[in-house]
């Protein structure tokens, strides 16, 4: 780990800082090496090694066993269920996120801060409790349980319960990304469009949406990653019926507990891939957003002159 540590400010030079660091505000070389070394050691131990281990253990018995573990029927049905769950939960929370951001960012009303806190609630609830609430509502002893049984509707230990629990845990993602973004953009552009005679929907499609598309994508990506990877909440409501109500993370658990370590890690590696892809897209969007933001401030500065 003999990293070459050159003095300099790491932040992007766009902030208007000098590209050099004066010696007076720079630590001695050995301090820098020790600090970078500690950071490397910590991240290696807690991030890199676990990540590498997932792929290593999955591929330990070769490529064929790896592929077989993934296309095995139970694993395959888990993959399909996971994709379906995300395909329902993400669009629902996307529509909610846009509606919430529109009302909160574009209008003033009383109780806005309370609303913001309530939107954040699912983030602070333990996943286990997120599952428990649906057991209390739809379980046989639950509030709607007897009625559901009379009408032969299955929610708990069936697909609808899994979808509901996933919607709950991924509820704030899109809204959380869009609200600050739309607040910072203000509403002058929308107002201009309306004055020029555009309808409300037209304004939204042609003015607002292009402005928030990267933020929207950011929220969707994070929402999707969580929707596909959720374990605790789904585990409580799923019932663990093989080939029917197992999502990928639950399938990983079952295989692992059956000492099928290679199979567990092979299936888990799909989720690790998803995580890496999510991080890559996220970094790309951050870069785009940063560019958009600097272009925006440059434009504003030019306007003032």
């Amino acid at each position: 780990m003999s990293a070459v540590i050159t003095p300099g400010i790491a932040t992007t030079p766009m902030r208007g800082e000098p590209a050099y660091a004066p010696a007076a505000t720079l630590e001695p070389l050995w301090v820098r090496i020790v600090l970078v070394g500690i950071a490397f050691a910590f991240l290696t131990l807690f991030l890199f090694v676990p990540l590498v281990a997932v792929f290593y253990e999955g591929l330990k018995k070769g490529w064929d066993v790896y592929v077989d573990s993934i296309i095995e029927p139970d694993a395959w049905s888990a993959i399909k269920l996971t994709l379906m769950t995300a395909a329902i939960a993400v669009p629902l929370n996307l529509v909610f996120g846009v509606a919430a951001a529109w009302s909160i960012a574009k209008f003033e009303f009383r109780g806005k801060n309370i609303l913001l806190t309530l939107i954040d609630l699912p983030f602070s609830v333990s996943p286990v409790i997120s599952g428990l609430i649906y057991v209390l509502l739809f379980g046989l002893q639950g509030y709607f349980g007897p009625w559901l049984r009379e009408h032969d509707i299955k929610i708990l230990f069936a697909v609808p319960g899994i979808v509901l629990a996933t919607v709950f845990v991924t509820f704030p993602f899109v809204a959380r990304e869009l609200i600050p973004l739309m607040q910072s953009q203000g509403s002058e552009e929308e107002e201009a469009a309306l004055v020029l005679g555009a309808s409300g929907w037209k304004t939204f499609w042609h003015v607002t949406l292009p402005n928030i598309k990267w933020g929207l994508l950011y929220g969707v990506i994070l929402c999707n990653a969580r929707a596909m990877g959720e374990f605790g909440a789904v585990s409580v409501v799923s019932g663990h019926i093989r080939g029917e109500t197992n999502t990928i993370p639950l399938q990983v658990e079952i295989l692992y507990n059956e000492f099928n370590v290679v199979g567990a890690f092979a299936v888990a590696s799909l989720l690790a891939f998803l995580a890496l892809a999510t991080l890559a897209i996220k970094s790309f969007i951050e870069w785009r957003l940063h560019k958009q933001l600097t272009a925006h401030t440059a434009l504003a500065a030019a306007d003032q002159e």
Partner: peptide, 28 residues
């Protein structure tokens, strides 16, 4: 504050625990 090789990747990977499903982290 510092520049060193691989910084971009490390910066992006810091979020891994957010993105990696907990069950995968658990078995790893």
């Amino acid at each position: 504050r510092y520049k060193f090789p691989g910084k971009r990747i490390i910066d992006a990977l810091v979020d891994l625990p957010f993105a990696l499903p907990t069950a995968v982290a658990g078995i790893a």
